[in-house]
Amino acid sequence: MLEHLKAGEKAIIKDISAVNKLVKRRLLDFGITEGTEICMKCKMPFGGPFMLECYGQCVGIRRSDASDIKVERI
């Protein structure tokens, strides 16, 4: 699960089918889908959003959405 990554860890997305449809569309717009390599940049406190990096761009997503994304650490 993406939410278990620590700041600075990298992973490859395995499955995003469980994610909310609109969020999935937006992530797809950023080029984030199955097979994309992402890096966890930062986690906001008190259950706040995550900051991810992929292909050199930074994207913010919510923790609840991140918990629906299956990833594999590398």
Binding site: L22, M51, Q57
Partner: peptide
């Protein structure tokens, strides 16, 4: 229910 937040953070 719907609340959506995905944001691009520009350099």
């Amino acid at each position: 229910e719907t609340s959506l937040f995905v944001i691009e953070l520009p350099p």
